[in-house]
Amino acid sequence: MLKLENLTKRYNTGDLALQGIDLSIPGGQVLALIGPSGAGKSTLIRCINRLVEPTNGSAILNEVNLTKLSSRALRKSRRKMGMIFQEYALVERLTVMENVLSGRLGYVGFWKSFFRKFPKRDVNEAFRLLDRVGLLEMADKRADELSGGQRQRVGICRALIQDPDLLLVDEPTASLDPKTSRQIMRLINELCQERGLTAIINIHDVLLAQMFSQRIVGLALGNIVYDGSPEGLTPEVLTKIYGEEDWSATIEKVDDEYEEA
């Protein structure tokens, strides 16, 4: 469903952020991308929807080579890739509803979006999604009035209303407390199951990655150094990804009963 071939990114500064990544992800798989800061996780997912232009190689989504698209066709393809951001990246001075509806911008003409005249189906879907994440009453609040967890839920709605095939998730829990982090990760996971979505999730927290994904890819210095099941993360593998450290506490199996359902 998504296939990366020799994907390479060299920044203008000369830093080689991705060194020829080959990766193929079947439909419906939730994949966690782990690795230390600067390993190229963010660059990798941004090269897929070309918020960062890859230097070389290709990313093929449903038979379409994204790296070759014209800017118009690229916009069309971006509609099929929902993105969830670190620090939420909501437009803070717009209302929650406008933030959710902004996920439909690729489908709506300029003047319609200027006057906030979105199709009835989109508005209905927006309300349904807000209800699904438990924020129905917040629709008219401004985004900067919400708490961190609430903002990330809005971010999730914005990505889902695009009706995407692929979800690109960049450090969704980076600025959230541990409990909210789990709730957000569980929500993303559930939504992916409900809709049969493919997802790539960048995440710092190894425990969360193990809990909520079917496959884990470890990235170090722009190279894939691990690709396998969550259970396969041994201290040796983690050392390969992150470097020397005592990993015994990290990979202890988590107990789900401590969390609220």
């Binding site: 209302t95 406008e98 906030r116 009835k120 508005v123 209905n124 309300f127 349904r128």
Partner: peptide
Amino acid sequence: SETLYPKSWKKP
């Protein structure tokens, strides 16, 4: 059911 949600929204 879906129909319960409003079909239009205006910026406050």
